[in-house]
């Protein structure tokens, strides 16, 4: 099922909101740079870096891929691992 909305109209609606959110992300990364210490080895920083790269991917399904990136892994044999 497709959207009946016009792409240009949607961009009009969301441009300022997305711009503001991107600025928040940029400012947060700058804040981390200015802060004492180093989080480059923190896996959450790596997740954020990979998430930002995903946003630039032109292929659809970005939200789902981002969700998977921030998800714990699922193992099909969880029941035997839990002896359940």
């Amino acid at each position: 099922m497709s959207s009946p909305a016009d792409a240009s109209t949607l961009l009009d609606r969301h441009f300022l909101e997305v711009r503001a959110r991107l600025l928040e992300v940029a400012a947060t990364l700058d804040r981390l740079d200015r802060a004492q210490g180093d989080v480059s080895g923190d896996p959450r920083k790596d997740q954020l870096d990979r998430a930002i790269a995903m946003l630039a991917d032109p292929e659809a399904g970005r939200a789902e891929r981002l969700q998977r990136l921030f998800s714990r892994a699922y193992s099909e044999d969880w029941r035997s691992q839990m002896e359940l």
Binding site: S71, R72, A73
Partner: peptide, 8 residues
Amino acid sequence: PHLEDKYQ
């Protein structure tokens, strides 16, 4: 579940 636990 929520957040990182949802998919699993």
